[in-house]
Each structure stands twice: as C-alpha cells, then as structure tokens.
Write a protein that binds this DNA or RNA. Structure first.
Lengths: 192, 192
DNA sequence: CCATATTGATTGATTAGTCAATCAACGATG
DNA sequence: CATCGTTGATTGACTAATCAATCAATATGG
C-alpha cells in the first residue's frame, strides 16, 4: 500500500522469511502463506516475485549455497599453504552458520528433494563439483598425481557423513568432528 | 469384498505397496489413496490397519530397518574373524537391496524427517546405535582400548557419507565405494 | 449371530495459484 | 508546472484441487 519495496529488497525479505519459517517447522514443508505472512506481505506477492512455490524454495537453496561458498572462498583467500586450504574448507563446512536449524533442515530436505526434482539435483551436483574441485586443488601439491582425486572423493564423502551426524544432534559441530577428518587426511598424507 | 485377508497379510501388502509407490515418485510424498490403490484396497482400509498416514509411513521405515538388520546379522553370523565382521557390515550397508529406488528415497527423506518427527528421530538413532555397537564389537580385538569407539564413530560417518553420494548417483554402489572405506580402516589398523 | 474385514461416500481442512482492481512513483508532454 | 499515462508493486477475494480422516453400512467367515 503505502510502501513499495524494490524487487531485490522483497526477494531478500521473502527468502529470509522462508528460512525463518523453515527453521521453526524443521522442514521444507512450509506454506507460501506462512512465509509471506512472516515477511509481512500477501501470499500473492510471493508468486509475483518467484513464479511459484518451487521457485521460492529453489531461490532459498541457492541463497544457502551462495552463503556457504562465500565463507569458503574467504577462507581460501587467507590460506597460505595447501594444508591451510584444506583446513579452510573444513572450517567452512563445519562453521556455526552451517548448523542453524533452518540450514540443517534445508540441507537434509535438499538431499531428499534431489531425487525427485531435477532442479534440486542440479544444484546439489554443483555443490559436489565445487567441493571436489577445491579439495583436488589443495591436494595436488601434497600427494602423487592421481591420488588427489581419490582422496578428494573420500574427503567429500567423509565431510558429508560427519555433517549429517553432527547436524542430527542439533548442536554445533564438536571440535572432534573436524579432528576426525584431519586425522584421516594425515594418515593419507603420511603414506606418501 | 469376497476375500478377507488376515491382518498380517494386509499390513504386509500395504507396506509393499507403499514402497512401490515411494519408488515411483522418488519421495515420501505419496498419498494414502495411491498406496491403497496399488495394494488393491480402499484408502479406508489403510487407516483401519495403521491408524493414520504417519503410522503407515513409520511401519514402512521399520520394515526397511528390519530388512537391513537381517542382512547384517546373517553376514555377521558367517563371519569368522573380527575383520570379516567389519566386511559383513560394509557389505550389508552397500548391498544392492540398499540401492533400490524406494529404499534410497525412504532413507533420504527419513533423515530429513528425523528433525521434525520425534518418532522418525528415535528410529534413526536406533539405527545409529546398532551400527555403532556392531562396529565397536568387531573392532575391539583389533585396536587398543579406547580406540574402538573413535574408529567406529568415524566408520559410521564415513559409511553414511559414502552411501549418500552413491545413492544420489542412482546406481548400485561401485566397488570403489566399499574399497575407500576399507582403505581407511587399513590405515587406522596399521597405526597399531 | 458375532466379530472383523471392507468399502463408498463424504467432510473438513489446507493450499497453490489466479485475477482483477488499487495504489504509488515517475517521467513525459503540452 | 499541472496533468496524464505507464509501469510495477500489492492485495483481497476467489478457485480448483488435493487429501487425510471418519463413519455408517455391508459382507464374510467361523
């Protein structure tokens, strides 16, 4: 009525509201009306900006991925050695931001969604590719040729597995979580 | 109409139908009517036997867990050495049964569900406890005291992480998947 | 004839998505 | 500078569809 936000503002507000709503319900099973209500606008406006519900959910996922990516990139920028690069990736994966209730809910449901939604699947593969490529890049100077991709695959799976378990506990990741992965990495590096 | 099945028969048939339906849709988002229709009965009958939809879904989950457990127990029974016990657990976790479309859908959604449903969460924790306990038992003779639980934790997370990635590829687990975990185990064992 | 299986019909609630109408901002035009 | 028109934001009211759950009625077998 009185105030008209810009398109970008409203999109951001709706995505933030979606996250808050997801956080509260603990699942992606939220209605457009709930999200819109929380953002202080009508449900129709959400459709105006995102086309349909899937568009809004998808945009929320992309927001989370972008946030994660930004944290990792910033960490990598500061890393001086290959080993520090790996640590940066680990710190990004297990930082407190990744354990907010909404983030956890979104990630877990995201995995489930990836099977039935082509769109979600593509986004998830993108995350996997990026993680893999970052790890390979950091590993290349540390291990013989050919080993980097194998170890990166294992690290990726290990990270996801540990995240899964930590996330399900509903608290921030314990330091032991990162420690376990680093111990594995040390074992691999010591072989060469 | 004409024939009346026993309660147990009907329950089994409905659970089987639920799995087939989940398999086709790739998610737990199936309606009672779809499941009942596939089982050749009316939706009302599903409510008669399972109380509500949640009851039916939960029973389906329990069925999958029981199936998994049976495979592992059978494998453990045949295992002569501690190392063979671990291999049996791995073969159970990555056997072809675990990669049917319906099983994968159920597991992934199950993880997501565990956050918002107390019932699902309890079931998932039960799976975790059993896996952990089996692994610890197999590891005890192989490593110094105190190490068994740490390594079991890591193996559990690694298994889940690898399963996640293999499952998302939509095929049976590659032999390399089990191989990666065994390599990690070898590294840990060689330390002692 | 009793218990249980089974269903058809129905309801009540929820929800995504649509649409026409209103409102505010802003620039162009005479 | 006043006016008008265009554009985009915004909403309320509505629709159409879906679905879980209920229940009374019927069938069946022991």
């Amino acid at each position: 009525m009185l105030k008209a936000g810009t398109a970008e503002m409203r999109r951001r507000a709706l995505i933030a509201a979606a996250l808050r709503e997801i956080s509260e319900r603990g699942s992606l099973d939220v209605t457009v009306a709930q999200i819109a209500g929380r953002a202080g606008v009508s449900p129709a406006l959400a459709h105006h900006y995102f086309g349909d519900k899937d568009g809004l959910i998808h945009a929320t996922m992309r927001h989370l991925l972008a946030e994660f990516r930004a944290v990792v990139i910033e960490g990598l920028r500061r890393a001086a050695t290959p080993r520090a690069r790996i640590d940066a990736i680990l710190r990004g994966s297990f930082g407190p931001e990744q354990f907010h209730r909404a983030t956890v809910s979104a990630w877990l449901t995201f995995y489930a969604l990836a099977q039935s939604s082509e769109r979600a699947g593509r986004l998830l593969r993108l995350y996997h590719r990026r993680l893999h490529s970052n790890l390979v890049h950091a590993l290349k100077p540390l291990v013989p040729a050919g080993e980097a991709t194998r170890i990166a695959d294992n690290l990726g799976a290990f990270i996801d597995g540990v995240y899964l378990r930590e996330a399900l506990r509903g608290r921030l990741a314990s330091p032991a979580a990162i420690g376990a992965i680093e111990t594995y990495l040390d074992l691999e590096l010591r072989r060469h």
